[in-house]
């Protein structure tokens, strides 16, 4: 297993230095104007958000630094990090922030943009899951767990499937996992509706 991990997660060296030409201040201004992202520039960098966040102990940047990255216009770091995908949307940070910045909403905004421009971390399961979920639901009107997990694993870390076989088998035997592709009744109408919306 360790060998497998070492194969897939090669240690990477990251440059800890920023050239000013890498910053995109206009992008920062534009983010600050999106609904929910107001007040970004009043951030004190006090760290209350990271301090209250239940997930920050696993994040690569933690909420405070996300706000810092956005404010300085370091778009690729802000959109390419794992942090925004680890956010559990608990809103603890937004409730505590002394500047009443809606950090969770900023996270959502960044997630949307990361998906749109395909800047999310490659093969990181959460954005893959989000897209696969959306794909299945927009195709069939509801999700089918087996196929969702399968697609997520295939697009993020196929080798992980080996570790899931045992659990999957046990669930299947007890009738907890269906291979059936579920679908709502008027799926054509849904697809037409969604296509219409995408068009506008």
């Amino acid at each position: 297993m360790k060998a497998l991990r070492a194969f897939w997660f090669r240690p990477e060296m990251r440059r800890k230095m920023k050239f000013q030409r890498e910053a995109d201040p206009e992008w920062a201004q534009q983010v600050a104007q999106r609904p929910g992202c107001e007040g970004l520039f009043s951030c004190l960098q006090c760290g209350t958000c990271s301090g209250t966040c239940p997930l920050s102990i696993y994040m690569d940047f933690a909420p405070r630094r996300i706000i810092g990255l956005v404010r300085e216009g370091f778009r690729e770091d802000a959109l390419g990090c794992q942090t925004i995908w680890l956010c559990a949307s608990c809103y603890a940070c937004a409730v505590h922030c002394p500047r009443q910045i809606r950090i969770t909403d900023v996270m959502y905004s960044l997630k949307r943009e990361a998906l749109q421009y395909k800047l999310y971390p490659r093969r990181f399961p959460i954005p893959v899951l989000a897209q696969e979920f959306y794909g299945i639901v927009s195709d069939r009107g509801r999700s089918s767990e087996f196929w969702l997990v399968l697609r997520m694993a295939l697009h993020s870390n196929p080798l992980q499937l080996l570790t899931l076989i045992g659990t999957g088998w046990r669930l299947f035997r007890t009738g907890r996992l269906s291979l059936h592709k579920e679908q709502i009744e008027h799926v054509k109408e849904l697809q037409a509706e969604l296509a219409g919306r995408r068009g506008t």
Partner: peptide, 23 residues
Amino acid sequence: GKAADVYPAGNGDGRLIVQAEDT
């Protein structure tokens, strides 16, 4: 870092934990 939370230590020694991001 602004203290984000204060709560009793889980081990029951009566101490309090101050949690903050060391920015």
